[in-house]
Design a binder for these strands. Sequence first.
DNA 1: ACTCTAAGTTGGAAAAACCAACCCAATGGG
DNA 2: CCCATTGGGTTGGTTTTTCCAACTTAGAGT
Lengths: 151, 151
Amino acid sequence: MNPRDADYCSIARALAVVGDRWTLLILRDADLEQITRFEDFRDRLGIARDVLADRLAALVEAGVMEKRPYREPGRRTRYAYYLTPAGEQLRPILGALQQWGDAHRPPAVGPTVARRSARDDRPLHVAFVDDTGREVRLDDVRFTPTASYPA
Amino acid sequence: MNPRDADYCSIARALAVVGDRWTLLILRDADLEQITRFEDFRDRLGIARDVLADRLAALVEAGVMEKRPYREPGRRTRYAYYLTPAGEQLRPILGALQQWGDAHRPPAVGPTVARRSARDDRPLHVAFVDDTGREVRLDDVRFTPTASYPA
DNA sequence: ACTCTAAGTTGGAAAAACCAACCCAATGGG
DNA sequence: CCCATTGGGTTGGTTTTTCCAACTTAGAGT
């Protein structure tokens, strides 16, 4: 990757954390399905053990997940993986991916997971909003360079 | 990847299109920087030519980009790559990644690209909104299985 | 002492990415 | 007409990831 990217592009820096083939699927299971254990991730994803160990360690290192000990009665202490606040804030990325997949790669069976408000059960979607909390149409969104933008 | 994913998870289906190491960076340049030509993508990204050719062809195949002929005076006809409407709708994914990168991987120089409304120049962010267009807090978002959800 | 289990680690095969060199087809200049 | 130029690739060989299966580890229960 272009080294300028690491300096100037937040998208590239975010992708350095979540931009490989497995990480967002791991985070999906962690966030949407409350998966926390190595074997459960493995069973659900069918990911190779070594790759999973590597990805989880990288996510802990990146501050997106944390490893916490747990103990089931009559079992030894083991470790489970939980999202940190930084990890929970990846949720709009997952929501945006899901929304695009629903719209452009519809499954035969129809959407299987919906986004709804916990408070009043209204359906939710991911969108750009202004500083008053109002949704803005996609074609009103402009990405504009700031003073820090390189030549 | 678990084959159940392709059937039941829109996130997995979206990632099948954009979930490799380069694709979202290509789309970033296409959407935010209006890059359209092979050599320009190559120069900006530092991606290998064969991988770029492969990714662009895959994006065309996926209906996210389209190849259009163009002709500069005194030059032969060539092809450039433009986002389709389906490709433009990936923008919330890019916005969400950028926002997370800004917040959790801040660059030394400060954010270099901001999201603003084209209409009134208000700063924008990516969030979950309900069906009335009002922003909903992250911890009010629930991902709930529908009737189609597998056992 | 022995076994069982979740969570890894290791070694070798397969796939993907990387890199440099090459190709191709107008087109303008000589 | 011949040639060099140029954007957009293709090809062959090397390095890096991924995959898969087998092995290891540590403590709890028997």
